[in-house]
């Protein structure tokens, strides 16, 4: 049983061996996040609810954005958006903060960004509880198609993993990304129809085009169509989503693979 250190990653045997690590890291993050807070896990549900209250007050009541069941409209989109933004911004520094480990033990390095994505996925399911609460409160009956909701979540998860792999590798070399990414996220959020309907942009064809290129728009709309509007997105839409997810994963994976060998010299 020879292990050639130069070509060390036997991807699948590594993956099997380090599955428990992945699981433990996720549960560690979870424990640390809520340790010593009185309400604990309940915050995962309360946080999106409070955000929803603020947004619906500002945009629904004051700025009068006209969407039927605005609170539901918002929180459904927010769930997907929050998954994306939390996962990517957490994995951004994941390699850097794992430096003490990476320097001392051989661990496949993709574990760290992927772990952050999984952690955010767990959080996403708590946000779903908040979504259900808001729907009940507003009296919105979920569509039958809502049972298909795992499909956009899986698309989005693959996309998020790709972006996270890319970001975590790039951040090792250029720390500026840590500071830049917050601004980028804010921009991207406004380019995603979360607090406004797409129709609002009908007079601004240029912005509309950008919003439609934005991959997260597709995942948000897909999810919303299933949950709120009893619509199953077309085959074309599915192919677009799959295409974007796989592209992100391929590019992210490729960049990560190229960069990981030299991580240790930079962290």
């Amino acid at each position: 049983m020879a292990k050639d250190t130069l070509n060390k990653a036997n991807f699948f045997s590594d993956m099997k061996k380090f599955m428990p690590l992945l699981k433990n890291l996720v549960s560690k993050d979870f424990k640390i996040k809520y340790r010593r807070s009185v309400l604990g896990v309940a915050w995962s549900v309360l946080n999106p609810l409070f955000t929803m209250l603020v947004i619906t007050t500002v945009f629904g009541k004051l700025l009068k954005i006209e969407v039927e069941n605005f609170a539901t409209y918002y929180i459904v989109g927010f769930a997907i958006w929050n998954f994306f933004s939390e996962a990517t911004s957490n994995s951004l520094g994941s390699i850097l903060s794992a430096a003490p480990l990476i320097k001392k033990v051989y661990i496949p390095k993709y574990i760290f960004p992927i772990e952050k994505c999984l952690f955010s996925l767990v959080n996403f399911f708590f946000t779903l509880i908040a979504v259900v609460i808001v729907m009940l409160f507003q009296g919105v009956v979920p569509s039958v198609t809502a049972i298909l909701f795992p499909i956009p979540v899986i698309y989005c998860f693959i996309f998020v993993c790709g972006v996270s792999l890319f970001l975590s590798a790039a951040t090792v070399y250029f720390r500026d990304i840590q500071h830049l990414y917050g601004v980028l996220l804010t921009m991207l959020m406004y380019l995603t129809p979360i607090i406004y309907p797409l129709e609002l942009l009908n007079d601004h064809s240029f912005v509309l085009r950008i919003v439609k290129i934005n991959p997260i728009t597709h995942y948000v709309e897909y999810f919303r169509n299933l949950v709120m509007y009893n619509t199953i997105p077309s085959l074309e839409e599915n192919l677009i989503c799959i295409g974007m997810s796989l592209l992100a994963l391929l590019v992210g994976g490729f960049v990560f693979k190229k960069a990981e060998g030299k991580f240790i010299l930079h962290i």
Binding site: D4, L6, Y106
Partner: peptide, 11 residues
């Protein structure tokens, strides 16, 4: 296996 050598091989 933490560091990859610049040159040479390790088995």
């Amino acid at each position: 296996g933490i560091l990859e050598p610049t040159k040479g091989t390790v088995k």
